[in-house]
Write a protein that binds this DNA or RNA. Structure first.
Lengths: 219, 219
DNA sequence: AGGCTAATGTCAGCGACTGACAGTTGACAA
DNA sequence: TTGTCAACTGTCAGTCGCTGACATTAGCCT
């Protein structure tokens, strides 16, 4: 729907657009750096805009809230997982599809993140998110929204009605539980490599089924 | 450790204490009423204190935040569930213990709530919580904290280490998923009676096990 | 009755966020 | 190139949640 004859939809962003992109990235980087070093409450919006040398008003034109900029990176990851799940073969069992969606897009996500901020910085910011009640609450809300979307996709695959059959949401809730446990462990300080992290998540996901059934004391 | 010889620990609260109790209750009732009618952002703290005729500073001495007063009622319910779970027979399978804890304390919870505010008012406030992003986030954080506590109790019953074995947290996550699905249905407008609500939750809980395993398309 | 202390009110101030208005700067046609 | 339009930005004033400091009031206890 753009210029006629231009199959390539990205000819060149134009100076204005590039400038905007630069400002946005600068704000994100400055904000995350500050959050990681001074903590959430320890950094004001004025601090952030001072580092980039724009007005406070401009900040709020790019981000609806101070919170939003903190979740810039997680936002990238979420969309990838959703895409990955949509691409899974429909015959695959639900839990397996979820499992593969997360694990297979793992590397791709990390690469995408690295293009905006160093992964190491993101990790430090993530620790701040986990340890700051207000941010953690926002994180959970975002996760809930993601899980809702995943549940709808699963329901679609299985030909079910999400609002009539609770199983898709229950399944995704258990799945989300694993993710959160893993994230927690990650941020808790155990300096796991990304690969080790991935393996741990895989191991935990294998236990989702068995965890719900039967007697744990026998095994 | 009070007055010597007084086995009854609650002789009479004293005027000062009674006055505090009245102020607190008045603030809660005024706040909930306002939230239910004008919505979350539509009511300021000044509105609340004006209705009770105290200073804003007093409000913040009773409640750490505007948010806290909104969760006064849910707070009552949470402690009951924890108590109920601790009281379950240790031989009971984990999921069954959780199930019984919630369902058995159902009536007791409603009675306790009714002593502070009409259940109908709480229901209206709950709808506001579910539909207000900031409040919903806070609700999820509170739920996460509750689930963490439940997971620790379950782990204790089974003789497991919560941080080493992910299964308690996964189980509780799935369980929490059911609770949230039910709450959502409740607040979504389907005017279910409390009894119908309870039955629905029971039905859903029965599906937690089957939901995780196997192929849904056969049944 | 009078002193102690908890409860409350008043005031000033910070930080997140918003609307209104004015100035600046790319984009695009003449 | 120039001029017009629209997008972007800055400034300012103001609201709302929340806090610390300090003065005032009012139960409590001897």
């Amino acid at each position: 729907m753009e210029t006629v004859g231009a199959v390539e939809a990205v000819p060149r962003p134009g100076l204005r657009e590039r400038k905007k992109q630069r400002t946005r990235d600068a704000l994100v980087r400055a904000a995350l750096e500050l959050f990681a070093t001074r903590g959430w409450e320890g950094t004001t919006v004025d601090d952030i805009v001072a580092a980039v040398d724009v007005s406070q008003r401009t900040f709020f034109r790019y981000f609806a809230s101070k919170e939003e900029v903190a979740f810039f990176v997680p936002r990238l990851a979420e969309s990838r997982v959703v895409e990955a799940l949509r691409a899974r073969p429909p015959a695959e069992p639900p839990l397996e599809a979820l499992r593969r969606s997360v694990l297979d897009s793992w590397d791709e996500i990390n690469a995408a993140v690295e293009q905006v901020v160093p992964l190491e910085l993101h990790l430090r910011v993530y620790r701040v998110i986990e340890s700051t009640p207000a941010l953690f609450a926002a994180h959970l809300r975002r996760s809930a929204e993601l899980e809702e979307e995943l549940a709808r996709i699963i329901a679609g695959r299985e030909g079910l009605d999400v609002d009539a059959d609770p199983r898709p949401r229950i399944l995704v809730a258990a799945f989300g539980g694993v993710i959160r446990v893993t994230e927690r462990l990650w941020s808790a300080g155990a300096d796991l490599s990304l690969a080790a992290m991935r393996d741990l998540m895989a191991t935990y996901l294998d236990q989702v089924g068995p965890a719900l059934a039967g007697d744990w004391r026998t095994s």
